[in-house]
């Protein structure tokens, strides 16, 4: 065995990151895949088992481009189901952090902060399940250098909890669920049912 090749394999890189240690224990039973909600709710290509195989088979680029790497929200439904006790979301997180290191960008719509209205109250920092939001001193046009919230694109999973708590409506995930469309939808329905004022 050539000693220089050790440590340069993709699987060794993944194993070196906390959470990725047990990737090689996977015997491909597919429990995680059928447990996963993401692939069932409209992402048929999402397949943690396949990502683990990619890691083991040294398929670095394919792993970085896989939707599995980016869409896993670490809900850990698969972890208690895994017969090999592999922390699958930990492995996926390890692959993701390697991908971020290799300048890959997330494929998700992440939360965006309105720099003009954010008052740095910190409510979003409190509620974010992924600790993706931090209050950082930033130079903002017209407002000077002030503390405002800022979102880490590598951590945000676009759940929108921040937008639900924001008192100044300065943070949100720009995608199909906007406050206006929800309120509009509610009123259209209520009016169709007949509202007495």
């Amino acid at each position: 065995m050539n000693h220089e090749s050790i440590g340069s394999l993709f699987v060794d890189e993944v194993k070196a990151i906390p959470g990725g240690e047990f990737v090689e224990m996977c015997y491909s039973c597919g429990t995680c895949v059928s447990k996963c909600m993401i692939q069932q709710k409209g992402e048929p290509e999402f397949n943690p088992r396949r990502l683990l195989r990619m890691v083991m088979m040294d398929m670095k680029d394919e792993a970085f481009d896989s939707r599995t790497t980016w869409l896993c929200s670490a809900c850990d439904l698969c972890y208690p189901a895994c017969p090999q006790k592999i922390h699958i979301s930990g492995v996926i997180h390890a692959v993701k952090s390697l991908a971020v290191k290799n300048d890959k960008k997330t494929i998700q719509n992440i939360a965006v902060v309105d720099q003009q209205t954010c008052v740095a109250c910190g409510l979003c920092v409190e509620v974010c399940p992924y600790e993706a939001i931090k209050i950082i001193e930033t130079k903002v046009p017209y407002r000077g250098v002030i503390n405002i919230a800022s979102v880490d694109p590598g951590l945000c999973m676009a759940c929108g909890t921040c937008s639900a708590v924001c008192r100044s409506t300065s943070i949100g995930v720009p995608e199909e669920f906007t406050d206006e469309s929800v309120v509009e939808g509610l009123w259209t329905w209520l009016q169709s049912q007949g509202v007495e004022t």
Partner: peptide, 22 residues
């Protein structure tokens, strides 16, 4: 109203529904 998470429900949505007569 389908949302990514129950955590995404802004209390304003509920207030709107209440105001609207739900």
């Amino acid at each position: 109203v389908k949302l990514p998470c129950t955590g995404r429900i802004n209390p304003l949505y509920i207030l709107n529904a209440v105001q609207g007569g739900a």
